[in-house]
Amino acid sequence: MDSFRQEKVQRFEEFVDGRLKPDLVHAIAERDKVFEQQKIFSDLRRNIENLEKNSVTSLRTLVNLGSEVYMQADVPDTKRIFVDVGLGFHVEFTWSEALNYISLREEKLSRQIEEYTHLIASIKAQIKLVFPFMAMIFYSCPLHLFCKQITE
């Protein structure tokens, strides 16, 4: 009986450590990636809006060649911008088109973030749920009594 209970508890623990916790870490990492994307697009939107507001037609910037070595670059025409639409494809947009696309993209990203947040919450809930069960098995206490003890 005792060994059986111990085995049960051990299996629960293995489930928590081997399955739930890695899942949680993975979900959090994914959400962070989406956050980053969101930030990139919000930055881009702000920049384009800036360009529109100042009606900049030509641009001179510094290009990072790598290892923090910069070189001057000239952009003769800023009306057309190439925006990353995923999978390595870039689409040529005008400013208004780009802003339209960015708003759609941001919406999608925020939806993704919501999903990941839900996923993370549910994994956390599962982990929290497993522990009382483990305690219950360990002390061989019926569920309703255990719940009563918790609420009291």
């Binding site: 290892s67 070595v69 070189m71 001057q72 000239d74 952009v75 190439f82």
Partner: peptide, 22 residues
């Protein structure tokens, strides 16, 4: 010419013998 991480403009490098090094 990259414009943020998700976009770029077509452009060209000028003053090719001038580098700004960190």
């Amino acid at each position: 010419v990259p414009f943020g991480k998700a976009a770029f403009f077509p452009g060209r490098l000028k003053h090719t013998n001038e580098f700004l090094v960190l």
